[in-house]
Amino acid sequence: MAFLHGLGMVCILLGIPFFVSGTIGLLRFPDIYTRLHALTKADNVGLGFVVLGLALQAEEWNTVARLLLIWLLVLIASSASCHLVARAALRRKIQPWTRP
């Protein structure tokens, strides 16, 4: 049990760099599309690690199922909103930044 608890803690700590790099990408990247890349992908992997860590430490099946449900919901929500924001920007004729 202590082993699973420790493994879960490691997973949670592994998730944090992904969130941080998502934010750094959000600040550094040049246009809306590249910022969407950073936010959508990095943050979802970070959340995946946090959920995995908490699920390893959970005591009831119920909690594990609820955590997975939350993760799935966030996955759907963020990929759908990524698509919608990118589409809205593209239809507004916002040109993607290209390397000069």
Binding site: I12, G15, F19, G22, T23, L26, L27, I32, R35, L36, L39, T40, D43, N44, G46, L47, V50, V51, L54, L67, I70, V74, A77, S78, S81, C82, V85, A88, A89, R92, I94
Partner: peptide, 29 residues
């Protein structure tokens, strides 16, 4: 900071995603 600085409205929309993912992680922790 990015969301306040813009420059487009879509950048402020990134806030919803940021709160969606980070906020959920914070609440779970």
């Amino acid at each position: 900071v990015r969301i306040l600085r813009g420059p487009t409205e879509a950048d402020s929309m990134l806030a919803a995603q940021l709160f969606g993912t980070c906020g959920v992680a914070i609440l779970l922790l």
